[in-house]
C-alpha cells in the first residue's frame, strides 16, 4: 500500500476539519423572485433545519396546492449530522492511517454523499411539485411545479434558483481538493 506525502496528509486532515463548518453554515439555498418579489424570497437548508422566508413561500404555494414546508417533512434532518460526522471521521482516519486507498475512500464517500443528497432532494422536489392538493384554488392543466435541482427554472410568475450555499461550496471545495491530491499522489508515485 502506498503511503501519502506529508503535504497530502496535512491537507486531508484540514479538509476533514473544514467540514465541521457544515454544522454552522447553510448547505443549500433556494431563491425565488416574482414581479411582486423583486427583492426575492430565500430558503436556506442547514444540516438539521430550514431557515428563511419558509412561511411566506408556503403561503404563496398553497394557492397551487403545494404542501406547507416544515422541518418535520424532512427525516434527513435527524441523521444528516451523523453522516457528516462519519465523513469527517473517515477523513481524519485517512490522514492518520496514511494510505492512498483511504484518501480515495474519503473522496468516494464525499461524492456518494453529494450524489445521494441530490437524488434525495430531487425525489423530495418531485413529490413537492407533483403531489398537489386536488382542491387547490389554482389548477393549471398539465402544470407541475417541481423546483429546479440545480440552477434556475421559471414556475408561473416565479423564477426559482437552487444551488449550494456556503456549506455546500465547502463540500465541493473539499471534493475538488481531494481530487487534486489524488492526481498529485498518483503522479508523484508513478
Amino acid at each position: 500500500m502506498k503511503k501519502l506525502k506529508p503535504l497530502t496528509r496535512i491537507l486531508v486532515a484540514l479538509s476533514a476539519l473544514s467540514l465541521i463548518t457544515a454544522y454552522f453554515v447553510p448547505l443549500w439555498q433556494i431563491l425565488m423572485w416574482a414581479p411582486q418579489y423583486p427583492e426575492g424570497l430565500e430558503m436556506k437548508i442547514w444540516i438539521n433545519t430550514l431557515t428563511g422566508e419558509v412561511r411566506t413561500i408556503s403561503a404563496l404555494n398553497h394557492y397551487i396546492g403545494m404542501k406547507t414546508i416544515e422541518v418535520s417533512m424532512f427525516p434527513e434532518f435527524n441523521y444528516m449530522i451523523y453522516i457528516v460526522g462519519f465523513i469527517i471521521g473517515i477523513g481524519l482516519l485517512a490522514s492518520i492511517i496514511n494510505k492512498r486507498f483511504m484518501l480515495v475512500s474519503f473522496l468516494a464517500l464525499i461524492l456518494a454523499a453529494g450524489v445521494g443528497a441530490l437524488v434525495d432532494f430531487y425525489l423530495w422536489g418531485y413529490d413537492y411539485g407533483h403531489n398537489l392538493n386536488p382542491e387547490a384554488p389554482i389548477k393549471i392543466e398539465g402544470m407541475s411545479y417541481q423546483p429546479p435541482l440545480i440552477g434556475t427554472k421559471i414556475l408561473l410568475n416565479f423564477t426559482a434558483f437552487s444551488g449550494p450555499d456556503t456549506g455546500g461550496w465547502i463540500f465541493i471545495g473539499v471534493g475538488a481538493l481531494l481530487m487534486g491530491l489524488i492526481i498529485y499522489e498518483w503522479k508523484k508515485n508513478k
Binding site: 431563491l31 423572485w33 440545480i150 440552477g151 434556475t152 423564477t159 434558483f161 444551488g163 449550494p164
Partner: peptide, 8 residues
Amino acid sequence: FIFQGCKP
C-alpha cells in the same frame, strides 16, 4: 452553470 444561473 450555477454562477450563471444565480440571480436572474
